[in-house]
Design a binder for these strands. Structure first.
Lengths: 217, 217
DNA sequence: CGTCATCTTGATTACGCTCAAGCTCCGTGG
DNA sequence: CCACGGAGCTTGAGCGTAATCAAGATGACG
């Protein structure tokens, strides 16, 4: 059962990104409930998405059920850009969220196309940059360093709500190439060392910024 | 001591890619000796490169010396495209090789710029696709699966010279997020199971294609 | 033919996984 | 308002895969 539905474009909405762009002007707003699928692995990929509010997760399943989380997307982030014409990762709403969707073929004017092209290029570029970081993290970092990098990174991304973890331990584990137990234990160790402090399992603050940065490299 | 030197553009050269493009027409050919650096990590990134002959490796070092290999590039492949204005990975000649180099700012005509833009877009797209595969491999595959995936992939890429490994065990290890010993042991196991067969440590053939594909998923 | 780098193999260690049990937090309903 | 229940998180014990340390084997090159 899908809760997704289009919202009227003129609905009151605080600006989440600094400058208006093609997606802002032309995209259709859709709401998704927590855990709802936004698009599926192997689904045709001709739409472009931007997070308006909430958080989105992309992930990929192997045939035996092993899962790799690709990335997490925060308000203002573009996602759904994928090379081929089929999605290699699926996207799900991590929290209730509103996403603005734009069909590339729906563009009318030359100016719109150019504006979109620029946005798409920047987003792709950013995606590649993050994928490269992810490769480094997965290939050559220890569990300790992975978790430290993750917490450090997530603090930077979730501006305003810094210190909030909208994702479960399982999501974190599948992003870092670890198990939930290892993630949990590692977080506990980081607390014992007074580098971070959790209040409940979904919110933390950084106590020793330098130490965390050193671990994250 | 650098052995790199520009070659005359009209030098006899067998076509390695099917269609002429902006880099083909406008790029400057450079030769690099085995193990020579093509560009460094943190170097300014405004050039575009294409392999003409030989094989190129990109890699990234952590401050303590751990290395992650980004990818291997074969004749026809474009590399050196990186999001920011600084390279996050360095590039080295894995074998003696010839590379065609193009400075983006050197373009004269509108047509050239458009042609290059298309080439750059396709290359970036491909890069992202491969990075996503790499993330999956590093995050969720066992050593056995990693090595099988690698051999399977390298067979597909090195057309013509299928079965040749131009890279060392250390390069493979750093690409797969393993150690040389594990790579070596895993290759031995694959041989014991009659899935592959090596003649010398740099050349192999696949005996059981289906089994290899199954492991690689 | 000798030397050195690279690769393979072996023995041991350790990091992270698995399996298993409690605990915490929250929503739900009495 | 508190008791119950269940999902998600934490912690523990033991295990397994891959890393580390250490010899040898192979192969390339002078």
């Amino acid at each position: 059962m899908s809760l997704a539905y289009p919202l009227h474009s003129s609905s009151a909405q605080h600006a989440v990104d600094t400058c208006a762009d093609a997606i802002e002007r032309l995209g259709v707003k859709m709401a998704f409930a927590k855990d709802e699928e936004i698009y599926a692995q192997d689904e045709e990929a001709d739409l472009i998405y931007r997070v308006v509010s909430g958080v989105v997760r992309t992930s990929r399943l192997m045939s035996d059920g092993r899962r790799q989380v690709g990335d997490f997307y925060y308000p203002g982030d573009i996602f759904g850009l994928e090379p081929g014409d089929e999605h290699r990762y699926s996207a799900e709403a991590l929290t209730d969220c509103v996403v603005q969707v734009l069909k590339q073929s729906a563009l009318r004017t030359q100016a719109d196309e150019e504006a979109l092209a620029r946005v798409v290029w920047e987003a792709t570029t950013r995606e590649l940059e993050r994928a490269h970081e992810h490769v480094m993290l997965l290939g050559r970092k220890s569990a300790f360093e992975k978790v430290a990098s993750f917490l450090s990174d997530i603090t930077r991304r979730g501006k305003g709500r810094s210190g909030d973890l909208p994702m479960s331990r399982q999501d974190i584990a599948d992003y870092l190439g670890l198990t939930i137990e290892t993630v949990s234990r590692t977080i506990s160790k980081l607390q014992n060392q007074a580098i971070i402090e959790f209040e409940g399992c979904r919110h933390f603050k950084i106590c020793n910024d330098a130490a965390l940065a050193r671990l994250a490299e």
